[in-house]
Design a protein around this nucleic acid. Sequence first.
DNA 1: TCAGTTCTCAAACGTATGTTTCAAACAGAC
DNA 2: GTCTGTTTGAAACATACGTTTGAGAACTGA
Lengths: 225, 225
Amino acid sequence: MAQSDTVDRILDAAEELFAERGFAETSLRMITSKANVNLAAVNYHFGSKNALIHAVFARFLTPFSSTLEVAFDELEQKCQGQPPTLNQTLWVLTESAIRMPQRNEKGISIFMRLLGLAYTQSQGHLRKFLEQEYGQPFSRFMSLLKEATPELSAVDRYWRIQFMLGATAFTMSSSDALIDILDNKLGVQASVQEIAARLVPFLAEGMKAPDKLQVPPMLSGTTVA
Amino acid sequence: MAQSDTVDRILDAAEELFAERGFAETSLRMITSKANVNLAAVNYHFGSKNALIHAVFARFLTPFSSTLEVAFDELEQKCQGQPPTLNQTLWVLTESAIRMPQRNEKGISIFMRLLGLAYTQSQGHLRKFLEQEYGQPFSRFMSLLKEATPELSAVDRYWRIQFMLGATAFTMSSSDALIDILDNKLGVQASVQEIAARLVPFLAEGMKAPDKLQVPPMLSGTTVA
DNA sequence: TCAGTTCTCAAACGTATGTTTCAAACAGAC
DNA sequence: GTCTGTTTGAAACATACGTTTGAGAACTGA
């Protein structure tokens, strides 16, 4: 074989361990042990641990961003000049993520967790890498959101987008654990797809909320800022 | 002084550094340098790095959970048997957090970020510690949420609470950065209080959303699971 | 077959970490 | 002033990390 499968074994192991434990808490020795590969192989094939992290993201994000661009194209084409609705936009994103070809049964949830970690763990190099490589589809999604919510002020929209990102990143990044807890507590099985189907209307409704908080009358004596 | 201020200097430095960089990425040497304290002081006063992390949380959470219990008592008393509404419950929690006495101008945002990290960074010992020490007020909050949303099924409520937690933890944990970005982009000043005032209605509205996603007609040919 | 390249392997390197040690400095009580 | 328990200080400890090395194996193309 021209390129050994060592590279893929490393990527598989790294992906799973990073998702489980975070980046700083996962050592190269854990990765190479899990992958049944020599320690030096990581630096030989990738150059450094940071480059390995980038490669893990690139393996998923590159095909995903292509899929997404196509899906956005189709959406805009079908809408014929009309701006897509909020529900449509959110759902196209969600569906593109869900329908990505998955390497194993954990599939999407591993990657959602990695994306969540990318946000929450400082890791300056990662943020820079993601912005540089995949900033474009993200910008396009933001534009669609803007067109879908013309009634919102820029400030309102800004904050509510952050709220949406938070709910999504947080939930998806712990989706496995949350699914388990639900099963234990209520004996209900769930899937990432179902979480998404529940998340989208929650987000869409939140985006349409009335302007700002009316302090409940019973608390109106207190200062609010 | 009976107890030197070394302990507080360590806690102050640790709190700030943990919030900035996470737990694993912050070394004891960074902390003791910032605190102008000898390296060994951490292990002398706290016993271990993990115990220091616990102490950082306890310093804030212990008074906060007392405040919260009182606030919940007052709320239930005022409602005279009627279950408090969702908005009231959320706002009492928010207000209790905002009105906590703050050590400095960063105040609440530092702690929100720490709470967010506690969720997202694995740190099994921390999760166990928080559950054990502060599980009670959390359970009470959950009960109030349940009473405030009798129309929701248990499963719906479960997921939507996760969405709320996510939006809150995520936004608050990056509140400083988000406030800066908003200022740069739109020239608008904001405060943690204002974020809260915008977050509460977003969450409340999301909680009341219609049941589940109706797949948009234009996409109904696709499988949804 | 054989030269040239690509890859693997065990071992080591330098550095950073959390923790421990033990002597010195300090505090308050008598 | 001396004694006792508490706190600090500089140094070292053991361990784990990411990375590098250089020799050998495995593969490639002619």
